[in-house]
Amino acid sequence: MSSVPPEPGSAKPDPILVVDDLRRRFGGLVAVDVDHVEIQRSSITALIGPNGAGKTTFFNLVTGFDEPDAGRWTFDGRPMQRLPPHRVARGGMVRTFQLTKALARMSVMDNMKLGAPDQRGENFFRALVPSFWRAQEAEVEARAESLLERFRLTRLRDEYAGALSGGQRKLLEMARALMSDPTMVLLDEPMAGVNPALGETLLAHIQSLRDLGKTVLFVEHDMDAVNEISDWVVVMGEGRIIAEGPPEAIGNDHVVIDAYLGSHHDAPATLEEEQRQLDELTEATARESE
């Protein structure tokens, strides 16, 4: 990625997700307005930006959970626009949610098994005859066991998912997303509400996904986490991609700092501006004393 210029919309050597002219409006508010962005295959890309920058809306749009006003995007070379979310997931792009969606009144094991794709027993008529799906069910269970082992959730396998702690739910959700062996995983704030020790484990899991050749795109506010694991950082502000680059460069980018802290936060005020602010203050005090 060293050859990639650190600028918004830059071309990647081997992009898996390519998004063009993506727009989403909520009434008068333009939530997402992305001209062009590419996500590199088998890498970890962090999507950062202040609250309301459109990160989650961007996730919702590319995974089919929300419909854009305009735009087109390809995943692994296939056009994905207007596909319903379950088709996007079947295509190999699986997401998690900012507010964890553990299925509370189902066991941890059932949560995991749900993630497996192409299950014969999910067809209504075949469901009625267990011999059609028993063998596959055993395979699914074995796969779930090994993932639970990897995420150290084995001892909770028969527990209701609703009884898990917030951090354990995050782990479960990530493990469940991996049941389908997706090509790309989109994680919406995987670290939110997770204690630091478990956070380190989560980061290690995300890194191991890349080592398995998977592409990871994640939204995160914790800059330490972003710097620690990401290969590339994309910054959104007011719906647009305002900066891109390797993590070490992005922290010093003035556009990024402006987006988070407001523009001209450290620039000295001009004489006129100072005078205007002073006038406003005097006026306000005068009104109050009346």
Partner: peptide
Amino acid sequence: SPWGRVIKAIREDEDAARSLGK
């Protein structure tokens, strides 16, 4: 059956079921 697992998942959270390809 696995079919029943999907409908229970829908009861718990539709979007989660969708995100897993159902």
